[in-house]
């Protein structure tokens, strides 16, 4: 029994890299702060609580804006908005993208070609332009249209990725074996395709989340995101632009918040693969 001697199967241990932990901590911090704003904020976000354009102090950790509102409170609420947009947009992109991608992977060659070409055209549009078109086509900017617009724009990328990944899985012998043993298409998707494309998809979702946060800030900066008084980071940046030479901290603070969340998401995404894919764990 030569093949009985090497016992390779040992308890798979999870490898958590420092980068992953830093990423998870940064994302976790934003999530905690964002959720906290539902219950409590240091100040009323719309109340004028101090001097205008004050520098950071013990009373106002990030200073105040040009109307004297507490900037730290606004940034905290901005985290909630960024996370809401990211979650919503990724959920929409996941549902639409994975569905279309799977359809294309299973479809006949003609249907697949048409879908693939359509996706390529959609991807060629800059995400932001596509989102702007959708916002413009709806009856006014709101948090909802921003989420929908970014989600739809991202779904083309998710669909193309899903299609490629699913095609690769479908070419495997274990799919043929499953079909020989009488598994239907839905069973094959549920049992084999989704679990096998999941580790790559989840990483992409985390990256898309970061891109959605940036896209939301960009839309808000352009006035196409959540309208005031919603304290989106993009709107805070846009408002601080006028006074950037006299009170630079009004631009630096929301900028830091945005960058730390996106970096956190990217680091998190990097490490996520090792967690999601058992074949990549250390033996």
């Amino acid at each position: 029994m030569t093949d009985a001697i090497p016992t390779l199967a040992r308890a798979s241990s999870l490898r958590l890299t420092p980068a992953f932990l830093v990423g998870a901590a940064l994302v976790g911090l934003h999530v905690v702060v964002g959720l906290m704003t539902l219950l409590w904020t240091p100040y009323d976000p719309t109340a004028m609580t101090g001097g205008r354009l004050a520098l950071p102090s013990l009373a106002h950790w990030a200073g105040t804006d040009r109307l004297g509102r507490d900037l730290f409170t606004e940034i905290m609420i901005g985290a909630r908005i960024a996370l809401a947009v990211g979650t919503g947009a990724v959920a929409i992109a996941a549902v639409i993208g994975v569905t279309i991608g799977l359809l294309a992977a299973f479809a006949s060659r003609t249907v697949d070609d048409v879908l693939a070409a359509t996706l390529d055209i959609l991807i060629a549009f800059p995400t932001l332009l596509l989102a702007m078109l959708i916002v413009a086509a709806s009856d006014g900017a709101s948090l909802g249209t921003a989420i929908l617009a970014i989600g739809v724009a991202a779904s083309a990328i998710v669909a193309r990725l899903t299609r490629i990944l699913a095609r690769r899985v479908l070419a495997m012998d274990y799919i043929t074996a499953a079909r020989v043993s009488g598994t239907g298409w839905l069973g094959i998707i549920r049992i084999h395709v989704l679990p096998n494309i999941w580790p790559t998809l989840i990483v992409n979702f985390a990256l898309q989340f970061g891109l959605a946060v940036i896209a939301e800030a960009s839309l808000s900066y352009l006035g196409l995101g959540a309208p005031p008084p919603n304290a989106s980071w993009g709107r805070l940046l846009q408002e601080a632009q006028a006074t950037v030479y006299t009170a630079p901290f009004g631009a630096i603070a929301p900028g830091l918040a945005l960058v730390s969340l996106v970096i956190g998401l990217n680091l998190f995404a990097d490490g996520l693969r090792d967690v999601a894919d058992p074949t990549r764990r250390r033996r």
Partner: peptide
């Protein structure tokens, strides 16, 4: 019920994530 198949390369014949 009537037939089952065994393939040449068992690595690709088994689902890697199951």
């Amino acid at each position: 019920t009537a037939v089952a198949t065994i393939f040449q390369e068992p690595l690709t014949a088994l689902d890697p994530l199951m």
